[in-house]
Design a protein around this nucleic acid. Structure first.
Lengths: 257, 257
DNA sequence: ATATCAATGTGTAAACAATACACAAAGGTA
DNA sequence: TACCTTTGTGTATTGTTTACACATTGATAT
């Protein structure tokens, strides 16, 4: 009963004044201990997992909605989200009984509710250092978990496809955009940076060539410090040159034709 | 009166059963006589130009809607359209009195009509050989015209921004995707292909290096034929190796990391 | 203390790609 | 038949990417 009332309020708060036919879904990649993972949610009483997503308020831009939805559903804020594709297949939600799912949550919506209408979803992705963020859950969500991208479960709707597209985009972007800020600690070693790249790409890279390339981008500063404590030769610490980093984000790392 | 009735039918036909809050807009680049142009429409009684765009039917995918809208509004069919970005700023339509525009066409819609609600537009772009296509007009449109991309007029809504984004995407894609099929005649010369690239990029390229690069992509077949009639040495004719061309479209022209 | 181990720092040669550049051939035109 | 302009083609140079090896070092084990 308590639950039902909450859910009803939630519906009025959330679903009563959102735009129909449009949603955003966020693919949040996390990097930690040399693993690339993706943040998924599981709704109450439901087996399947899903991407954190949601609807737009009438007066909200796509970008703002993506940030708000992510914050509401996971507590994550100030994350660099990037739009990558709009998913508009007519049958992209057909494999999922969304009405039944909400019913299980105690949310009884009329089957003609706009929430069940066919919907275009705009996909966003982000990369975060996942020990730094602790998702909080909204009322709908029973569980969150970081999944290894290679072992992601079956998800609601077309979320598996959305995740795959995000990963493909991320891997391609690695050549053109700097990556690592907010993903690595303030100071990090070259091998750590390389592990990040290798993890995202899913392949190993040559140590010396990687270093040459990354230093060539001009977005790194080598510090005098070295990291002690490892059982071997102590590596130098680096940090990002933020000015150059953001400049590179704007203009891209690669050369013009 | 005639006009008014037509428009009313049109409204029922078109606007009575489209999805609110979502639209598609098409940036159709045309290449002809070494000019890169963009196809714009001008609505009846309206000064400003706009991109050909429209709404989704409830049972239509984004891609299908983009193709249908383009066909309805310009008669163009079987064009390779590529989605490139979703435009979702809250105020992207604020600079335009859309209600007034439709009123001028004799279409009297209630100001609360979904057509006037804030709308996310998904942008598509295409490249066509523009002497091959002759736009036809729908009832709303008074005039169409190919504009030089460097001299495009002020457009409705945020269409100038959408066009710029499409052009930027197109230029970047030139490095990664093959271009030319449906843009050049079946058989074409290397200088013609080069002109296409130069026109899109807005810069000149070295003849010999261009040829080496393009042949290196493996998407061209040189024919025995030469093109006669020019006042100079007759150039070889080439055609695209369609199998390789489509393979390259799938996987990209560039090398992996 | 000293040897050992594994990871780090560094440089160079080779392969490859991109660029700059020049001359011969040929189809029309005068 | 000479001329003009465009096309076809090759090579030297430069720059970038790749492949690869050895010396150094911090901790650990003896």
């Amino acid at each position: 009963m308590e639950q039902k009332i909450q859910a009803k309020n939630l519906d009025e708060q959330r679903f009563g004044r959102v735009l129909p036919h449009v949603s955003v879904d966020c693919v949040i990649f996390g990097f930690h201990e040399n693993q690339l993972r993706v943040l998924l949610l599981r709704l109450r009483s439901i087996q399947e997992w899903s991407l954190p997503g949601g609807r737009l308020f009438p007066d909200e831009s796509l970008d703002d909605a993506a940030h708000r939805v992510l914050k509401e559903r996971t507590g994550l804020q100030n994350i660099f989200l990037k739009q990558f594709y709009a998913f508009g297949d007519r049958h992209r939600m057909d494999n999922t009984d969304f009405h039944g799912i909400l019913a299980k949550q105690g949310i009884q919506l009329d089957p003609s509710h706009v929430l069940f209408d066919r919907t275009i979803s705009v996909g966003y992705y982000a990369l975060v250092e996942f020990s730094q963020v602790t998702p909080g859950l909204d009322i709908l969500t029973e569980e969150w978990r970081w999944w290894d991208v290679r072992e992601a479960p079956v998800m609601l709707f077309d979320h598996n496809e959305i995740m795959s597209a995000a990963l493909k985009t991320l891997r391609r972007q690695l050549r053109y955009d700097p990556v690592g800020l907010n993903l690595l600690p303030e100071k990090f070693t070259m091998p750590e940076l390389q592990k990040l790249y290798e993890t995202i790409l899913g392949k190993t890279l040559d140590r010396r060539n990687f270093q040459k390339r990354l230093l060539g981008y001009g977005i790194l500063k080598r510090l005098e410090e070295r990291r002690l404590g490892g059982a071997h030769k102590s590596p130098y610490l680096y940090c990002f040159d933020r000015e150059q980093y953001f400049k590179a984000l704007e203009s891209g790392l690669e050369h013009e034709w």
